[in-house]
Design a protein around this nucleic acid. Structure first.
Lengths: 347, 347
DNA sequence: TTGTAAGCGTTATCAC
DNA sequence: GTGATAACGCTTACAA
């Protein structure tokens, strides 16, 4: 039951435990013969160095923590996969924790502290509604280890923030609709508490302004969540309040899906009667009817980037460099399919 | 930079470090006044017990590891979320590792050993193509810590196996088609290397046999992967080789999606001309056109169950009980929507 | 080239 | 009740 230690190996090989330590650390000063003898002993006993003991001695755990909040399981999987791959590439392990569902802010902080207890060297926080005013609890944490926040408000002080450029995504989506000849464009946004919703809406506004297109408050409907049902309800509203609308920018593919259902229910067709562009490029998007034009998000890359920055920051703290918080925006990518129709310019 | 230790706290409170240890472990023998003094010191220094040192002393890490192989990111997220929640409920932390993409079997084992190095107390392996003949490398691992395999072949020796009852899912899906009056039913399976594909196919066969329905080899098309394109190609085949077919059992919703595209391309309509039932109940399933009848998989629960069994097994090993490997099957759940039509019985 | 001693931060054991 | 002292398994000195 008990696992062998370097002392067991040492006894087995007839050397001191220190020599064993040298071997497992690749110290070149060990004589070749001794080296082999130790290696054989290691193999025979199936010895595995105890990383816990090493951590204690090194005062380094090579461990990162990621805690996610209220993210869809799809995005969660992508983010974690990206982060994990990057972490491993650098010899780090990754603790996961999700604060989804039942828990609130308090639990959030408690979890981060638990991770500190485990002596993670850095933390990733995936919390899309995090802003300066609800992120106070983070300062105590960042005093201990660097933290990079995914999808947080960029104005959040003291931490690195990475995100996909939502303003740009909203801008490109809307500009595309404009380029296709649309002049009255409505939008279904996500929940206003999400930073992404505000940024994408800003992009929408910017695109309208850049084209000197009219805007009216009834052009925007905020959905209470990102699910299809909310998109459907919002679309019903839009249909009633924006008679001249020819195109919709939905802030997620799921919202777009619901909106398309509402459009169908109204006896209209996409894209003949109404064009729609989504956001996310979920795996089924190209198999919808019609295939959905949308904005792809490099979520996996986002997880990887967060991890890379975190590992950088860890290195900086160790060398005593000042790690001033940075902001990084990954570009989204327009994916053209068939849910947007070209509209002949008015003569 | 350096974090406070129990000795710092002890000095600050004017007691021995041992007393601090007693306080943070809730030892009742500490005098109330001393207790308070220590607690104050802890708060003032913002002391957090070092779990690494505790692990070394206790010889227990309260850490689990999950390594996933080649699973879709959606399922990955669900599984990890379920496992993590259950782990936390029991005071465990969870290391994640995914061996997706570029890596093969060798890397697989190396990763498990890395986790052992980290002294995880148990391992979850999510490897849907794992069977007795390719799982040899696991015996060395299970000698160290208990392992529960998700979606592995139940005949795999020496480890707990949990899965969703794929045979039953296939049986219920097919039986439902039969109950709706269909007599010639074809199926699009997943890659044969996946245990789930074989089991669901078995369920299909069992249902046909139970209803004394005819079967022909051309009724089954195996897709090389689980994606829509593969489903589309398989469906094209089926359309050509099974003229009398009235219903399709697709082993995943993504395959079904592709199949539906092929059906549409052939000028046919679902469910009027051809009924189809999927598998998974992906989030968009109810918003497809038509809403997809399918079989829901409790993946999150599967992750939780795996974790629960693992923690049980850890307890058993510690008390020296024999932990004979167990098999657990979670029931899938038929979700009725509109992609299957009732077919009048032949008079 | 190898071995010995001390320390990493905590808990267990035994005194007082 | 509280405080020394010795583990836990390893690494980093320093000595031989």
């Amino acid at each position: 039951l008990k696992r062998p230690t370097i002392r067991d190996v040492a006894a087995h090989a007839g050397v001191s435990h220190q020599t064993v330590s040298r071997v497992i650390n690749g110290d070149p000063r060990v004589a070749a013969a001794t080296y082999d003898r130790v290696l054989t002993a290691i193999r025979e006993l199936d010895f595995e160095p105890n990383a816990i003991a090493r951590s204690l001695s090194w005062n380094r755990t090579h461990t990162l923590g990621i805690v996610t909040y209220n993210v869809s399981e799809y995005a969660l999987g992508q983010t974690v996969a990206g982060a994990e791959a990057e972490a491993r590439r650098h010899g780090y392990f990754l603790f996961v924790g999700s604060v989804a569902d039942e828990s609130g802010v308090a639990d959030e902080e408690a979890y981060l502290r638990l991770m500190l207890t485990r002596r993670v060297e850095g933390l990733i926080l995936d919390w899309p509604t995090l802003r300066a005013d609800n992120g106070q609890s983070l300062v105590a944490v960042t005093a201990r280890v660097p933290l990079v926040a995914i999808a947080a408000d960029p104005s959040l002080p003291g931490v690195d923030v990475v995100d996909i450029d939502n303003r740009r995504g909203g801008f490109e989506a809307t500009s595309y609709l404009i380029a296709q000849g649309h002049r009255v464009i409505a939008t279904v946004t996500g929940p206003p508490a999400w930073n992404a919703a505000g940024a994408r809406l800003q992009g929408y506004h910017d695109a309208l302004a850049a084209a000197a297109l009219p805007f009216a408050p009834e052009f925007v409907q905020a959905a209470p969540d990102w699910a299809p049902d909310a998109g459907r309800a919002a679309m019903v509203q839009l249909l009633a309040s924006c008679p001249g609308v020819t195109a919709i920018f939905a802030q997620s593919d799921m919202l777009a899906l619901g909106a398309m259902a509402a459009i169908r229910d109204a006896g209209l067709r996409v894209p003949r009667d109404l064009s729609i562009i989504g956001y996310d490029d979920i795996p089924v998007a190209s198999y919808l009817d019609p295939p959905l034009t949308t904005v792809r998000q490099p979520i996996r890359e986002l997880g990887a980037l967060a991890t890379e920055l975190l590992i950088d920051a860890i290195g900086q703290r160790q060398t005593g460099e000042a790690d001033r918080p940075s902001r990084h925006l990954l570009p989204p990518h327009l994916v053209l399919r068939n849910s947007v129709a070209r509209r002949p310019p008015i003569a």
